[in-house]
Amino acid sequence: MADVKYTKDHEVVKIDGDIVSIGISEYAQDALGDLVFVELPDVGRTLDKKEDFAVVESVKTAAEVYTPVAGEVVEVNEALNDNLDLIKESIESGWIAKIKVNDADALAELMDEAAYKDYLSSL
């Protein structure tokens, strides 16, 4: 089973070998409110660690989505253009982009679910 991790900026990261799928956590979705638009990155774009690669816009605000690891965008979730509610479902269907990771060590800094829950309760 794939490994699911979290960032302090509330991204969800599903790790599958050297490919990570990045989405946004339930907490982030709740904070943003109903989403109205997502701006997907171009496939092939190379990203630095902590670079923003997508924008999610809600009725309240717009927020950037960051990658916790450097790498290359290998796939984007075009299905979101037709149905933003997929983001609510799970990382399986609501991922925003898949990134081929350059430096797998950076993944070790991410939080697992228990650690993320602790982090949320500290906010």
Binding site: D34, V36, F37, E57, L84
Partner: peptide, 8 residues
């Protein structure tokens, strides 16, 4: 008003 529908 339905802000979500208006934006989408």
């Amino acid at each position: 008003l339905d802000e979500v529908k208006a934006a989408r």
